[in-house]
């Protein structure tokens, strides 16, 4: 399922589009510690986290995450949003906690 479809169906707010219309999220992954995420994040995963800073972007890009979804209404700062635009990384925002957000995505992509 494309990230755009996931965003629409689950009502996530779009912080930065990136390649959401064409790129698919094949898995969902949760972690807030960058060095753990770096080694464990599966490629093409939707990464749900409460960390929305430029380092999250760096790890997402290096680990080939499909997109970043900040949970708990965490809003990345302006600098991070600009950087996401520059690097074409999809960033979405969910009002729900990490677990609920990930569960919703998992149910949707495995339906």
């Amino acid at each position: 399922m494309t990230i755009a479809d996931i965003a629409e169906k689950l009502n996530f707010k779009i912080i930065n589009e990136g390649e959401m219309k064409t790129r698919e999220a094949k898995k969902v992954f949760c972690c807030d510690l960058l060095s753990l995420a770096m080694s464990k994040l599966p490629a093409d995963a939707a990464w749900v986290t409460v960390m929305g800073n430029t380092n999250t972007l760096a790890v997402a890009s290096l680990a080939d995450a499909a997109c970043i979804i900040t949970a708990e209404n965490v809003c990345p700062d302006e600098n991070t949003v600009n950087k996401a635009k520059e690097q074409n990384i999809t960033v979405l925002k969910s009002e729900f906690p990490v677990f609920e957000t990930a569960l919703m995505i998992d149910k949707l992509i495995n339906a």
Binding site: L33, L34, S35, L36, A37, S39, T49, N53, N55
Partner: peptide
């Protein structure tokens, strides 16, 4: 608070 400090950096470097 930025997400660092898990103490996994050097172990990752060794592992990978």
């Amino acid at each position: 608070s930025l997400g660092f400090g898990a103490g996994m950096g050097l172990p990752n470097m060794k592992k990978y």
